[in-house]
Design a binder for these strands. Structure first.
Lengths: 243, 243
DNA sequence: TTGCTCCTCACGTCACGTGAGGTGGC
DNA sequence: TTGCTCCTCACGTCACGTGAGGTGGC
């Protein structure tokens, strides 16, 4: 009944797409008329609509062909999984859309909300410019990669600065940058940091140690790279928290 | 601060993706350290997150590069358009998901709902097997390609069969299949069909003539191909409806 | 007759993925 | 030292798109 062009228009695909599906064995080659043209039935159109639904859902063509050879029950189950996958992809795209709207609304080249204030506090407490730069980079990165978790983490960090004991540990950490890695001050600093962390957080619930976020670990690595002393403090703290 | 691998993990892309973005000029090449490794700042991560938002929204990489060179206002407007496009794509995917769920639930290899009954009626009215097959194909195709409009069109078709005059026209159409294309019966039939159509529908609101659906036209073409007499009827009816 | 559609190769494209073969960092 | 990461080509892949060069249908 239908030529390849008519079928293509009916289903909303290109002629080439249909020919590719024939070549890959997704859609059986139909009868040819006396001049060699493919002639399609409505059943072919129904098949093509099904194939398109799967292809649009992101299923690779090779897997769609496998579906055709499986049993009806298998196919049913596979379709369910594909639909679930698609649901996840859709919500991913909705998050992408949200980010686009945010980018369209404001200029994201500035510091994330609250970070400016956080940095101002650090400056007043006497932290070094190096530490401030590092913190600016850190929070920019956390906000860019984990927009939902970032505000909570920043608030937590702000609270820990309220405690003079904690604050002193951070100040000492900052100052340790230029120390020799073997300096005994470093061992003392690491011990205090471990104790303070254990008092502040439940064990097994340390911020930045949860599986959902490896960003702090990355930051830590990047931080470590810049100073042998900082590298040693990190090693000692990790050892202390594990034992 | 960050190596390419760390940046990749932070943003959730592959190392290769980042290198491709450098090669295509989407993301500027960062400084290298003394051993030739690329070293990224948090700002680079923010840039990369923006690029990914656009890429995930389906914007071609070449257009993303153009965005970077445009003014801020242009970029803002372009982002809005991208977000709108994405919204459309998302609702398309939601329809795809709905189709997948339907395929997972029931076996779609059978006739669409109501078509079986329609065909039974046609048989009782004395239509030929050829006509029944054609109608089965036609409705299967319409339901596959226009699932939301199809039930209404089928109901409309059912109603027109209630009218003995209309029904006779269809029966004569069916029977004309084997007539010579020059047979005067055909001219009479075409005149009656035009009159009935004009009485039944508002001019400019003929079903299947609206822009939203070229399916009936395709079907008609396919139908025409099988009989010179039917081809002639179609030509005469179109001429009659236009004048 | 003229424009439109169909046919089959063959090559192009887009956004990466995958080694190959070699070097640097903890 | 050993496994992991980085580097630069070069080629592969997936799902089509795009001619090339030719023929059929209204």
């Amino acid at each position: 009944m239908l030529t390849i062009g008519q079928l293509a228009r009916a289903v909303g695909v290109s002629v080439k797409t249909i020919r590719v599906y024939h070549a890959k064995g997704l859609l059986p080659e139909p009868e040819r008329d006396f001049s060699g043209y493919r002639r399609y039935t409505a059943q072919d159109a129904v098949e093509l609509v099904k194939i398109r639904a799967l292809a649009e859902a992101g299923v690779p063509l090779a897997r769609i062909r496998e579906f055709r050879s499986g049993s009806d029950a298998e196919l049913r189950a596979a379709l369910g999984r594909v639909a679930d996958d698609l649901a996840r992809r859709i919500s991913g795209l909705q998050r992408t859309q949200e980010r686009l709207r945010q980018l369209a609304a404001g200029d994201a080249d500035q510091l994330p909300p609250g970070v400016r204030e956080h940095l101002d506090r650090l400056r007043r407490f006497g932290f070094s410019d190096r530490w401030l730069t590092l913190q600016a980079d850190l929070w920019t990165l956390v906000f860019a990669t984990h927009p939902s978790a970032a505000p909570g983490l920043l608030r937590d960090q702000g609270e820990s600065l309220d405690d003079p004991l904690q604050r002193q540990i951070f100040l000492d950490y900052d100052a340790a940058y230029e120390l020799d890695a073997e300096d005994p001050i470093i061992d003392d600093l690491a011990r205090r940091a471990v104790r303070a962390t254990q008092e502040r957080y439940d064990p097994g619930n340390l911020p930045g140690q949860d599986a959902s976020s490896d960003i702090p670990a990355l930051i830590q690595q990047a931080v470590n790279a810049s100073s042998p002393a900082w590298r040693r403090i990190d090693t000692l703290i990790r050892r202390g928290l594990r034992s």
